[in-house]
């Protein structure tokens, strides 16, 4: 019932947290790196318990209810208007989303 099992060998480092934050597009602060490294390490140590279960021949479940593709008649129905779609945008120009520079990054 308890999650108090020892953490797995490779404890998560501050550098790994920084890497995860970059992948997840989170500009975390130095202080957060310290806090999250400690917390993620504890959490990962606990959740690693799933590895105790012998499940080699067990099929994975991605969804609790079996899913099958659903077809519907290919009929036009109203969607959002341009005005509605843009209504929550942080910046708009000429009826379009205005976004910061995309090309030229990560050089």
């Amino acid at each position: 019932m308890s999650l108090d099992t020892p953490p797995p060998s490779g404890a998560i480092t501050r550098d790994e947290v920084a890497h995860l934050a970059r992948l997840a597009r989170l500009a975390v602060t130095d202080d957060e790196l310290d806090v999250f490294a400690g917390q993620l390490d504890v959490i990962l140590g606990a959740v690693a318990r799933v590895g105790e279960v012998a499940a080699d021949d067990i099929p994975p479940t991605s969804h609790a209810v079996p899913l099958s593709n659903v077809f519907r008649p290919d009929e036009r129905r109203p969607g959002l208007t341009q005005e509605q779609a843009l209504s929550g945008a942080p910046a708009v120009e000429d009826g379009r989303f205005r976004v910061p520079q995309i090309l030229g990054e990560e050089q």
Partner: peptide
């Protein structure tokens, strides 16, 4: 080790 194994555990819980 993590996500894949967790999905198998999900089957066992069902």
């Amino acid at each position: 080790a993590y996500y894949g194994q967790a999905q198998k555990v999900r089957t066992l819980i069902s």
